[in-house]
């Protein structure tokens, strides 16, 4: 199969602000991570791909077609926006079901398919609750459920792990992997390289609206590992968690920037993300959010672009 997304010199301006600056890259079948710091142009590219924005120049093809106002193409894509805003007054079930009805699905089929999709992301128990009562991790999964429900060819996921708790991360990454194993294609953006690494080694690096590198991420891993990776953890017991984490030899520093917040820097992000869920469960700690400030990745990008 040819490239899922083909971009040649794509330009996007917001008034005098440049969103994409001659972005050129190919996204191959399978899972591809679009990695870049905040403001790099990831969301702009995605909005162009879903037809929410129109490019000012260049050529952008999604599954071989121009995405701008392309109604039929939308049957083939599932989109998970970065924003956690949802229709708070709808239940999870009604949310997915309503969007499936917009796909042209019959009411009975939509109800059944929505249930299956919510089960796929581990939200069966919460499907009848209003979305406004969902945690950030649950919202991420609800967004993923609506993106997956109509069995698209391609998933476009904008920061799908942002703010998700450890359990939600595991479920989201598992759902993405399972989707790809069934033959689906995924493009997921993140400013945390290690999140992508769990599901693919195929990445496109974006910085200042340009693709600066693409291919196998192991080629740049050594470079990135020189920079400690920061993780901000929201927990009701920051001191207990800090005590547990400092026992890890790869932890460089631990800070308490705010009440119920812990900022950790590690030289081995892989090990950190792998071991954290176990620590949380073993010590019965309450971790309700994980975020990676992008300063560590920003340092790498500054190095890459000179």
């Amino acid at each position: 199969m040819s490239a899922v997304v083909e971009a040649k010199g794509v330009m996007k301006w917001y008034g005098e602000v440049l969103g994409l600056n001659g972005f050129t890259a190919s996204f191959n079948p399978g899972i591809t991570g679009l990695v870049g710091p905040n403001g790099a142009g990831k969301s702009t590219l995605f909005k162009l791909l879903i037809g929410q924005l129109h490019a000012n120049g260049g050529d952008l093809r999604l599954l071989g077609q121009d995405p701008w106002n392309n109604v039929e193409l939308k049957r083939k894509i599932g989109y998970c926006p970065e924003s956690n805003q949802l229709y708070g007054w709808l239940t999870g079930q009604a949310f997915v079901e309503t969007l499936l009805r917009l796909d042209g699905m019959r009411a009975d089929d939509a109800r059944k398919t929505a249930e299956e999709s919510l089960a796929f992301v581990g939200l069966t128990g919460a499907k009848d609750r209003p979305l406004r009562t969902y945690s950030r991790g649950m919202r991420q999964r609800a967004k993923l459920a609506q993106a997956l429900a109509h069995a698209p060819e391609l998933l476009i996921l904008d920061e799908p792990l942002s703010g998700a708790d450890p359990m939600a991360r595991v479920q989201i990454l598992r759902a993405i992997s399972d989707f790809a194993k069934r033959g689906g294609h995924v493009i997921m953006s993140t400013h945390v390289l290690y999140e992508v690494e769990r599901v693919t080694s195929n990445i496109v690096l974006i910085h200042n609206g340009k693709a600066i590198a693409s291919g196998d991420l192991h080629a740049i891993r050594a470079l990135i590992d020189e920079h400690p990776h920061a993780v901000r953890i929201a927990t009701s017991k920051p001191r207990d968690l800090a005590q547990a984490l400092t026992a890890m030899e790869h932890i460089v520093s631990v800070e308490f920037p705010a009440p119920e917040t812990l900022l950790v820097r590690t030289r081995k992000p892989d090990a950190f993300y792998r071991e954290l869920p176990e620590i949380v469960v073993d010590r019965n700690l309450d971790v309700h959010g994980l975020e990676s400030p992008d300063d560590s990745l920003e340092a790498v990008f500054r190095y890459l672009v000179g």
């Binding site: 909005k47 879903i50 037809g51 929410q52 106002n69 109604v71 039929e72 939308k74 049957r75 894509i77 599932g78 989109y79 926006p81 924003s83 805003q85 949802l86 229709y87 969007l99 917009l102 796909d103 042209g104 609506q146």
Partner: peptide, 15 residues
């Protein structure tokens, strides 16, 4: 304003 429009714009329904 609520950032919910993308859910509608990514469905096979014309604007």
């Amino acid at each position: 304003d609520d950032n919910t429009l993308p859910y509608l714009l990514t469905r096979p329904v014309s604007k």
